[in-house]
Design a protein around this nucleic acid. Structure first.
Lengths: 114, 114
DNA sequence: TTCAATAGTTCAATAATATTGGACTATTGA
DNA sequence: TCAATAGTCCAATATTATTGAACTATTGAA
């Protein structure tokens, strides 16, 4: 397996992030990872697990390339986590509205400017 | 020109909305419309105006089909507006985080009319 | 240590989408 | 009536996504 690349948060591109989330399979994966738990591909895929493995592998790559997830090999499995804090820092409010979960560990200032 | 279709807000699909915004040309159009002004295709396209008209026409259709914009014919032009209120109601916070503009109807201390 | 099972990845072929040129339509102002 | 304007529509081409099949790496058991 080739070494995978994870973009730096500074290189996140909004259009790429939205594109990555603009697919029901990938959106489902992101939602499952939104709980914060690290999951294998098969588990994160959930009901989409019935898709061919090559297709899922492709979807995980799209998510990884856009910066949405970080993956690491653990034994025979590839474990994924949502890059929540980095995404929240770069695109405040985005994941909260898309995934329906509040930002993790975000220290809220006393007042937020609109 | 065939009659165009605008989906009802209840039929908006999050993945479709994200997909529509997940393209630099379409994201640019949405951003330009985020000010609330109604614009012709050419104006809303902004710097992407150099693209072929047929390509732009396709992008506007994607935005319209996803429910992001509403279009109407006015004279020789097709005018577009962002379906801001309906999108805000259906996907709270989404456009605010994507377009960097607060939701319409958000009460600030002093409201300024456009 | 060898082996089979597991959990993916990679590649190449095919299927599905996006882009585009060119012909077309509707509206307007001269 | 006519030419200009602002797009739309269509069919060909270019680009992407999906997939089967072969492959890799790791593990647990024999």
């Amino acid at each position: 397996m080739r070494p995978v690349h994870h973009p730096a948060a500074a290189d996140f591109d909004l259009a790429s992030v939205l594109y990555a989330l603009g697919d029901t399979v990938r959106l489902g994966i992101a939602r499952r990872l939104a709980g914060g738990r690290e999951m294998s591909c098969a588990v994160a895929a959930g009901d989409a697990e019935r898709l061919p493995k090559s297709t899922l592998s492709f979807h995980f790559k799209v998510l990884r390339d856009a910066g949405l997830i970080r993956t690491r090999k653990s034994g025979v499995m590839v474990m994924s986590t949502l890059r929540r804090a980095e995404l929240d820092a770069r695109f405040p409010g985005l994941l909260a509205s898309v995934l329906g979960t509040p930002a993790t560990g975000t220290q809220r200032r006393r007042e937020r400017k609109l």
